[in-house]
């Protein structure tokens, strides 16, 4: 790792560690959920930006992670196990879907459609589990109500005291930090470079003798586990999860986070999440309807005007202005 980059990582870690000292309790709690969403966005950017596979079902995998965490947390009473199960559950679902999609050699559009369909079906299925018979142990799925009374994460073992809001922020922030390091490292390793090769030209990679199928499958499973982790952390954060996580706007907003941040940058997904969430909560104060109109229009506008994402486009613009200011240096390029 180069020196400057090390400084970057350290700076990020210091800021992360310092934030709760500067912020009020409520702001810390609110920031925690932004960090959780950022992890979800990171999971999509790894899959889409690095491997070039577009999944519309990241929010659904996030939701599955949340539900699995809730079920394990309530039925077994151990929350760290719930966190692990919350990663495994979506990973298994992704493995099944990915197997059909990648080994069936259906086109890239099919995965997008199948994951979208999964989202819609889960929305309806989970919405109709209100009957008490839909329960695993003490954990009732709750239908439209969702699952309530999901235990907060506790590292002290079964029945131990749950983490306080600040401690929880550190756990979530630390996990996001680790996840980002993991994704960056992986994308630079040979596995990640082959994924990028697949993204650029799949048949060439195949002709070069790489088996693209299991690599795409593995990328999808890793991304699903990360989305699931975020979902589990979300369920622990609010002690609550309901079928809204499977709604279409929820699925769309994940794609928007990544698009705004710029595909393939990984860090950009985090930035995009924070910016979009902050803006939508502001617009949401005016009225919920405007949020969907604004989000929808952003999506159309980005696709039509900024193919590489909003943040890279902005940065290019800034760079251009800076270059022009510094007077003719760019001319030699």
């Amino acid at each position: 790792m180069k020196r400057g980059e090390l400084i970057g990582w350290t700076a990020a870690a210091v800021v992360l560690a310092g934030l709760p000292q500067l912020l009020s309790l409520f702001q810390t709690v609110q920031l925690t959920v932004f960090v959780i969403f950022a992890m979800l966005a990171l999971s999509l950017d790894f899959l889409w930006g690095i491997a070039g596979i577009l999944s519309f079902g990241q929010a659904a995998l996030f939701g599955i992670g949340g539900y699995v965490y809730g079920i394990v947390g309530i039925a077994l009473g151990t929350t760290p196990l719930g966190l692990i199960a919350g990663m495994l559950g979506p990973a298994v679902v992704a493995a099944l879907i990915g197997y059909v999609a990648f080994y069936g050699r259906v086109g890239s559009m099919y995965l997008a459609v199948v994951t979208l369909t999964l989202t819609l079906i889960l929305y309806q299925v989970m919405g109709s589990t209100a009957d008490p018979k839909y329960a695993i142990g003490d954990a009732r799925l709750g239908g439209y109500n969702g699952m309530t009374n999901i235990p907060s994460l506790s590292l002290a073992g079964r029945g131990g005291p749950p983490l306080g809001p600040v401690e929880y922020f550190y756990v979530v922030g630390g996990l996001l930090f680790l996840a980002l390091i993991f994704c960056v490292t992986l994308s630079r390793a040979s596995f990640g470079r082959i994924l990028q090769g697949i993204r650029e030209n799949e048949s060439r990679m195949e002709l070069l003798g790489y088996d693209v199928r299991w690599r795409k499958l593995l990328a999808f499973v890793i991304s699903a586990a990360l989305a699931g982790l975020a979902g589990a952390l979300f369920a622990s954060w609010g002690n609550f999860i309901n079928p809204e996580v499977f709604s279409l706007p929820q699925a769309a907003v994940v794609v928007i986070w990544v698009l705004v941040g710029g595909r393939g940058t990984l860090w950009g997904a985090i930035l995009g999440t924070v910016v979009v969430q902050y803006l939508t909560s502001r617009v949401g104060e005016v009225g919920a309807i405007y949020t969907t109109i604004v989000l929808g229009s952003i999506l159309v506008a980005i696709v039509l005007l900024f193919r590489r994402g909003l943040a890279p486009a902005l940065m290019d613009g800034v760079a251009r202005v800076v270059r022009r200011r510094s007077g003719g240096v760019a001319a030699g390029r």
Binding site: A11, L16, L19, R188, V274
Partner: peptide, 21 residues
């Protein structure tokens, strides 16, 4: 990622977090 952009990017990400709060 290059060295320079990584530095810039990480601080940008942190700044974003700080601004939002």
């Amino acid at each position: 990622l290059t060295r320079r952009t990584a530095l810039f990017e990480l601080s940008a990400a942190s700044l974003g977090l700080a601004l939002a709060s």
